[in-house]
Design a protein around this nucleic acid. Structure first.
Lengths: 226, 226
DNA sequence: GGGATGCTTCGACTACGATCGAAGTATGAA
DNA sequence: TTCATACTTCGATCGTAGTCGAAGCATCCC
């Protein structure tokens, strides 16, 4: 009895609809203010404030003060991974809050998973990187090969900077729409940033969806052939 | 707003301490009766009954009637995997219900994860199988190699029977104590059953811990060298 | 300074869900 | 049949957590 870690604590944190909405909104990767999160959850600012402090106490969120705003975001990569995993499970049980709407296909095609690319595009990129041996599965985690390293540097990603951080560079994340792995970690983040900086892809407002431009689509397909 | 699957539903199911205790108890893999689960959770039978019907409605549990008993167990492999994943997250946040006690080391050494072996032994077995190319990572999932197939048949496992089932034979599961992968799926289950049938290992009562005998220890090390 | 805006804290209300006693159903044993 | 066990359903109670109004800080702008 009473063995192991306390899953009830996290469960209850996620279990409240208002908090779940906030977390889902934060899965889009942007840091959001308390007011924004309140409207996302459909509650008043006071209530949101109380929820946010609980989520922060539980280690799911961190806040940054900037002027008179407080920006909240998911505390670490692990939080995003855990949430995506839960979403996958919920989706597999048919626990959907909405009948699949017009937005759904866009989300399945390409979306933000906290800070990296997910959906069909995310999986395609991952598969391509594996097939071309630029990343490889090493025991339990993912590693960048020398070939992969020079490749991403050619793209303009600062490998040294990635390496300096304590965060893992590569890591897998389970996709709830595709039910397949895609690339997370600081490299996953850097790649998504790159696509956006280059103007290949754009985030849709108030959504996790990512829209690729015609050029971006072409460039992406060339970079990551099927 | 309101995108994606409803994580609040599962969250709230897991979020109640009584239900979390029941689920944790069921992670030991045995099917338990309502009365047993009630004592595990420290509540009366009536309350337990209400919780159990909720968990069943949520698709986390299934029940089997046997005489006047009702045996409850986790609905599918996915449920166990999801719970172990949550435990891993909770453990990483230091959310423990108890100060690490005397039982803790035993659990870390070898324990049941729903229906397969986890802990140090589970990870060792997994690593060994990979190193000897008896299972291999194939894209996103695990596959038994021809060498692995004849190997497990030599051990007395009915490969044809495993293959017939719709369940995946091999699959990875994230270990919350080791933070590494170990082998789940029907093969994982068959192997654990084998160890117990051969008398190499024994389940401890009312615990997820598994105790290997001296002989079992030796046999295990020979079968799965480091 | 004065007046927004953004957010937190306090206090009170409310509703939902966990809880258990009591009664009801089903299975098994004698 | 009768009694015992295993469990469910009903009904009532009770606590707690979510909710918001009002007031209190903090920051920024003019």
């Amino acid at each position: 009895m009473k063995e192991g870690p306390d899953i009830a604590l996290i469960g209850s944190l996620i279990g409240d609809p208002a908090r779940a909405n906030m977390l889902t909104a934060l899965m889009a990767g942007r840091a959001l203010t308390a007011t924004e999160l309140a409207t996302h959850a459909g509650i008043t600012l006071q209530t949101a404030s109380s929820h946010l402090s609980k989520l922060e106490a539980g280690g799911l969120l961190t806040q940054r003060k900037q002027g008179r705003h407080r920006y909240f975001q998911l505390a670490e990569d692990e939080v995003g991974l855990m949430l995506e995993n839960l979403m996958g499970f919920a989706a597999s049980r048919g626990m959907n809050r909405h009948r699949p709407g017009p937005k759904d296909p866009a989300l399945r095609k390409a979306r933000v998973c906290y800070n990296h690319l997910a959906g069909d595009y995310g999986v395609r990129m991952y598969d391509s990187l594996i097939a071309e041996k630029q990343i490889e599965v090493k025991g339990d985690d993912l590693a960048l090969t020398p070939a992969g390293q020079s490749r991403i540097e050619a793209l303009g990603i600062d490998y040294a900077a990635l390496k300096k951080s304590r965060r893992p560079i590569c890591r897998t994340c389970l996709d709830w729409s595709e039910r397949r792995s895609h690339l997370a970690g600081s490299l996953g983040e850097a790649l998504l940033t790159l696509f956006i900086d280059k103007g290949w892809a754009k985030r849709e407002a108030n959504s996790r969806a990512i829209r690729f431009t015609a050029n971006g689509d072409k460039a992406f397909s060339e970079l990551f052939p099927q």
